[in-house]
């Protein structure tokens, strides 16, 4: 479904990704794990075209989407739930969700998606008329995920959805990600919370210094010596 081929990217004169290749198949939950500054977020930003790849290709459903405008990537069927929520702070929760279903395709399915989201996040529905900035961190994360779902994506990218949240909320977030995948949306999730992410993922990649150093079945990675030492602290 999604294929990255030797992607190089960075900011200004700094190169972050030194040739990243990875693959996500339809229906999977795939995770990229790695430390701070390893290039996880940059990888997602390249896929969603928030930054441009210096070289290499990004393919989505057989189409080359490298260098496509960011809003076109959303229309192509990829939605990203960005790090630190990035809600529209002075808009109501409902308005945030309306912005989520901005594309023509999404607007046609607005009603049914809204019902789906309300079913998944009853707490969000209670807050519809509140400004997004007045919500707690956990609630904001739920709105961010709900907003991403409103775009009716076929592939959803999650950038550190558990960052800065209380353990009980972290568990809810992972449950929701699993529910989204069960609903037929393919998921690519980037996390520092390595153990819990590998628990829900089908496959995983380990990224270090802008390079994929390891990839495989999630269960296999949990058992791997290097992963256990470097990321699981075991």
């Amino acid at each position: 479904m999604l294929k990255l081929n030797d992607v190089m990217a960075g900011y200004g004169s700094t190169t972050i990704l030194h040739g990243v290749s990875l693959e996500v198949n339809a229906g999977e939950i795939v995770t990229i794990v790695g430390g701070n500054g390893a290039g996880k977020t940059t990888t997602l930003r390249v896929i969603s075209s928030l930054i441009r790849a210096r070289s290499g290709q990004v393919q989505f459903e057989g189409r080359d989407i490298t260098g496509m405008k960011a809003h076109k990537v959303v229309e192509a069927g990829i939605t990203m739930v960005p790090e630190a929520r990035q809600l529209f702070p002075e808009m109501t929760v409902l308005e945030n969700l309306q912005m989520g279903s901005f594309t023509r395709h999404a607007r046609a399915h607005y009603k049914e998606k809204l019902d789906e989201v309300v079913g998944l996040f009853p707490r969000v529905a209670e807050r519809f008329s509140q400004q997004a900035q007045s919500l707690s961190g956990g609630e904001q994360q739920m709105v961010a995920i709900a907003r991403g779902m409103m775009a009716c994506p076929r592939l959803m990218l999650f950038d550190e959805p558990s960052l800065g949240l209380a353990p009980i909320v972290v568990k809810q977030v992972f449950d929701v990600v699993r529910a989204i995948a069960a609903g037929g949306t393919t998921v690519l999730i980037v996390e520092q919370n390595v153990y819990q992410t590998l628990k829900i993922a089908d496959r995983g990649y380990v990224i270090e210094n802008g390079e994929i150093v390891m990839g495989g079945e999630a269960e296999q990675l949990i058992g791997d010596d290097h992963v256990r030492k470097a990321y699981l602290g075991i």
């Binding site: 969603s48 960011a70 939605t79 529209f88 808009m91 912005m99």
Partner: peptide, 24 residues
């Protein structure tokens, strides 16, 4: 209006607006 809301959204968070599919 949807256009008006997307103008506000862009003003409040430009990159998030792009992620919604808004042509900033």
């Amino acid at each position: 209006t949807q256009l008006g809301r997307s103008i506000r959204a862009t003003g409040q968070n430009r990159s998030a607006a792009q992620l919604m599919g808004i042509n900033v």
